[in-house]
Amino acid sequence: MPTPTSPRPDAPPLLVFNHQVLDQCLRVVSAHAGPERPRYAGPVGSHLRHAIEHWQALVWPAQPGCVDYDARPREAELEASPALAQTRLKDLQQQLATWCADTLSAPVQVRGQCGLTGEFDFTVPSTLGRELAFVASHAVHHLALIRPHCLAQGIAIEADLGKAPATVAHELANARASTPTFSTDTPPTHHQET
């Protein structure tokens, strides 16, 4: 039976993927929670705060129908507190568990800044589904940046943490292709030496 924060059994793959990436983030945070654990603030906390705030901008926009990733709070406490990060990640999972396929087709306007110094504003049309694909991919990128810090601290992490899904699929296909297969249709022929 799904937990209150798990995706519905009929959830579109994009929602399942976001749930999986949020789970990866929760495992990284948990590895840093507690008095004897490696320091969370710094690269790990900064990257996760950044990813969490992007999800929040999409899931709880300041203006309905308009997503602005650049108007983030850049919250120092979220960057320093594993407990707060865990709460926010679980809240995101719980909210996304209420979304369905129809939610993903809802139109949104994405606002932001561009130009090398943020000198230009832009607004482009999108959908919640397209933006959900972006925030999950964006978080995977930040998990890739977190990965070496976890390894340097001796934290056991999953082999595919921070790898793009297409990269993992490619590696699995290559591994299957290089594994010899044996047919069981015909029994092997044994030659007896004389």
Rank of each mutant, 00 (worst) to 15 (best):
M1K: 12
P2K: 04
S6Q: 03
P7R: 02
D10F: 02
Q24H: 06
C25A: 15
L26K: 03
R27E: 14
S30N: 08
S30A: 15
A31L: 12
P35C: 11
P35K: 15
P35F: 01
Y40W: 06
Y40A: 08
S46P: 07
L48A: 14
A51N: 07
H54V: 02
Q56T: 13
L58K: 01
A62W: 07
P64E: 14
G65R: 08
Y69H: 13
D70M: 04
R72P: 11
E77N: 11
L78I: 06
S81T: 02
P82N: 08
A85F: 07
D91H: 14
L92W: 03
Q94F: 14
L96F: 00
L96C: 05
L96I: 00
T98F: 09
A106M: 11
V108C: 13
Q109W: 13
V110P: 01
Q113R: 15
C114M: 07
T117M: 13
G118E: 04
E119N: 06
V124G: 02
S126T: 07
L132S: 05
F134S: 05
H138W: 09
A139W: 02
A139R: 03
H141Q: 05
H142M: 01
L143V: 02
L143A: 10
P148H: 14
H149Y: 15
H149Q: 13
C150F: 06
Q153D: 15
G154E: 04
G154P: 10
I157V: 15
I157E: 08
E158G: 03
E158H: 08
G162C: 06
T167D: 13
A169T: 14
H170W: 14
A173E: 10
A175M: 09
A175D: 10
R176E: 15
S178N: 10
S183H: 12
T184Q: 07
T184F: 09
P188K: 09
